[in-house]
Design a protein around this nucleic acid. Structure first.
Lengths: 251, 251
DNA sequence: CGCTGAGTTGATAATGTTCAAATTTAGTGG
DNA sequence: CCACTAAATTTGAACATTATCAACTCAGCG
């Protein structure tokens, strides 16, 4: 295990977000926003025992596919994951982007089979949490049970927010809302809320927001022209957060 | 308690779906699709002890409101509930309709405050399940814990389906999908999958599907003209289920 | 029996899609 | 490191679908 850590560090020397193995949840800098949140040290140790850390996923690689047997939920440790479903007629629908510290795969619990597929948008590492073990542990650790209920509940609430967005909003509002969501989630991880790199393509953004690529592109151009954003390929700088917030809920 | 049951029966003599108090989950005909699903008799008794049954809600009455303290989740016993959020600029977004045997309120767990409001679309009765009690019980009843995880997971999966619908589909597809969803859920409750009464207004339908009332109305008219539906006010008869299914995923 | 809110229908306008083409970026092999 | 190619992105113009506005009909209710 230690050997691999050294190997990987050699491969990725100056990466700000390396994909190195974390020895445990205890020394993971994401623990405060991830599953261990609100657990005591001894409890984290127990959680740690069931968590499996495997080697990073390469860009484009799948973590699981729709209708795969459901075994585990996953916590993103580095990189970005995208979840999507394929409709009956073969179209794709992106249902979410997952950043470090966030949990994915919870939609598979209900049927014991994954309701969506998950693939890496860039090199990414995840922690695997076998669900049966998590269930058992939850039964004996009220804090963990509570927190996992909360995580699922948050996913519901966030999906409902997306529903509202898709149902009501103009293209400008949708894009603005996504950028603000990314900004907020960056802040939670102590990253810049104004400067970041979009790990997903314009196609993915459009797909997620229910817009065509062309429309997304036009919105970016327009926002740049208005001085709200600076767009340089995938690099985004939010120049005027207030204006962006206004655009996000301007009727 | 018994007195009230009699009173209510006097008020509602021939109702196919009366709002009478259920003595317990054990003799509730919804138990097979509701929270007690997969529990053993003795377990149902324990669940029963924490369930609170109160008097029916009148049409338009709220069960809870957005940002109310979260205390309980609720199971619909009769009638229909609608969940909705109010956006910052005062617009409403219907996030779901809940029929007998279905659970609502789970989006409030994450923040200890409800993320949506719930109101009765017609006279409706609900079972209240205090969440703290449910948590405690779950810790000692693996089946219950599992089932509740599954219910939340299903809510996630269903929300994602709605996201897909809103993101990709034409007005026809959306309306068709909603009708099929209602049809399926009716079948689960041993009601007719082809003849039913829409308890929600056209405005609510449009709001839920991200369409205007006018568009919903036009879609109904069109489907009627095509011989797929018979629409008479709120009464719907599905004349050609296959055609409706084709419309639901026709690109 | 008239009133009120819900639902339907028609005409017009707006927003975003589609199709087409140009341009830029990223990846690959020499 | 550069040239080359494929992929991603941007931009423009025509078109389509749905929203909007307005008028009308109908159902339910005092």
């Amino acid at each position: 295990m230690n050997t691999q850590l050294i190997d990987l560090n050699e491969d990725l020397p100056v990466q700000p977000c390396s994909h190195e193995y974390q020895a445990s949840c205890n020394n993971c800098r994401l623990s405060s926003i991830c599953l261990p949140f609100a657990l005591e040290a001894s409890e984290i140790d127990q959680l740690d025992n069931i968590v499996q850390r495997s080697k990073p996923l390469q860009k484009g690689q799948h973590l699981y596919r729709e209708s795969d047997d459901f075994q585990s939920v996953f916590a993103v440790r580095s990189g970005t994951m995208k979840a999507y479903r394929t409709t009956d007629d073969g179209r794709e629908q992106v249902t979410g982007f997952y950043f470090p510290g966030e949990i994915l795969g919870m939609d598979g619990i209900s049927n014991n089979s994954h309701a969506s597929s998950a693939k890496a948008l860039e090199t990414a590492a995840v922690c695997e949490i076998p669900f049966t073990s998590l269930e058992k542990l939850s039964a004996s650790m009220p804090h963990l049970q509570r927190h996992f209920f909360q995580l699922m509940s948050r996913e519901i609430a966030e999906d409902q927010q997306l529903i509202t967005l898709l149902s009501k909003s103009s293209a400008d509002e949708r894009v603005a809302a996504l950028l603000l969501s990314i900004s907020t989630r960056n802040a939670r991880r102590k990253l810049s809320p104004t400067n970041f790199r979009l790990s997903m393509s314009r196609v993915d953004i459009g797909n997620y927001l229910g817009l065509t690529v062309e429309t997304v592109s036009r919105v970016f151009s327009r926002m740049q022209k208005l001085g709200v954003l600076r767009v340089e390929n995938k690099e985004i700088e939010i120049l005027d957060t207030d204006a962006l917030m206004k655009m996000a809920d301007a009727h």
